[in-house]
Design a protein around this nucleic acid. Structure first.
Lengths: 201, 201
DNA sequence: TAAGCGAGACCGACCGGTCTGTCTCGCCCC
DNA sequence: GGGGCGAGACAGACCGGTCGGTCTCGCTTA
């Protein structure tokens, strides 16, 4: 791993722990064992680094969360697998994200401080929500889910459940509690498949 | 409102927008229209201010979220009312929290940077989760909820759903989306009351 | 006149960013 | 093949600005 990759990797960890503004260039130099010269030789500014770190974080997110999904046929099965990946392979991935989901940390920090950076982060959330909604819609079309199930409502429960579980995990650091949160969402999704009398609309 | 109260009130707004570390003393002085002398005459440090701001935020949280709950008998009714209050009276309360729930903003920011401050924040989350669990337990005892319903699972869904909805609201600023999130939780809770065949355990 | 509140100059530490200097290569010409 | 040169990588002193916090002093009010 060359210096540039090392800086991005170490920054990713630091950002997940302390946020963007909370991480100083000095912190990064120390973690990557380099100097100002080494840093600014590869990045034009701290913001430049931000965007490259986010790119890398997205790659890791997909790698961790989407693993095995293409081998599953049923849309609801894909969602269940996504939730399991999210819990076991992503949130517990202390190597890359010792401070939990970096998108959530950064989003909470930058929302009202750096609109431009925040906008970049929002894209990912929109994407995740869209994926959930799409899969649920497919689940309805294929008959796994009752037509009476409200795609929007379930999307919201799953999406905010995922965000909340990560946030909650960051606060209490309890893997048991994280397991319970995500398992509850999986059970909730299973309920929707077994029963037809849900009056959601 | 005297200067001290004004500083606390303005800090509360700023903290909800930009976090604790992201808000400078200068920002606070400007918002409260005072000077260093005026500030340090009432607070011994920025951390001292933090604890007093959190105290005030807790008062407002209770005032907004618990309103009317003591006039409701059914435990599940209390939870529904809490969710409605949370959505309409608390999260949309831009006067006090223009940046959304201040506890979530601060918690995400301070988790891995100021453990002492973070611990103070965690108390509130533990309290909310405990309240939800207690009400669900009472709901089971009074027969509103089936004994087959898992208190822990439902607690997790409601709790992380509340956190996630707030976080999501912070990101997309959409009241419609917020309404959907919380309404989905309310509907979910209603389902648990109407049906007995939930195999949660 | 005494007390306390608030204004703002000031302090050292630290911020992101610049700039110069050094060291190590690969390449070219003799 | 050996000597010289230039480009790129990295080190770290340094810059102006901002941070949280201190201190002095004048004004207000009783």
């Amino acid at each position: 791993m060359n210096l540039k990759e090392k800086i991005i990797h170490e920054s990713l960890k630091l950002f997940s722990l302390k946020g963007f503004l909370g991480t100083s260039i000095h912190d990064i130099l120390e973690a990557a064992d380099t100097s100002k010269g080494g840093f600014y030789n590869h990045f034009s500014s701290k913001e430049d680094l931000f965007f490259q770190v986010i790119d890398e974080a997205r790659k890791i997110w997909r790698e961790k969360n989407l693993k095995g999904l293409d081998q599953i046929e049923k849309p609801t099965g894909k969602i269940t697998q996504l939730l399991k990946n999210y819990k076991n392979r992503y949130l517990k991935d202390a190597d890359n994200f010792p401070g939990g989901c970096v998108f959530i940390t950064l989003s909470a920090e930058l929302n009202h401080q750096r609109p431009q950076l925040s906008t970049e982060l929002e894209k990912g959330f929109v994407g995740l929500k869209g994926m959930l909604r799409r899969l649920l819609k497919q689940g309805k079309e294929s008959g796994e889910l009752s037509k009476a199930v409200s795609t929007d409502s379930v999307t919201e429960i799953l999406f905010s459940g995922m965000l909340g579980a990560s946030l909650s995990f960051g606060v209490n650091k309890s893997k048991k509690s994280l397991d319970k949160s995500i398992n509850a969402l999986i059970e909730y999704l299973e309920q929707l498949q077994q029963s037809d009398q849900y009056p959601f609309d």
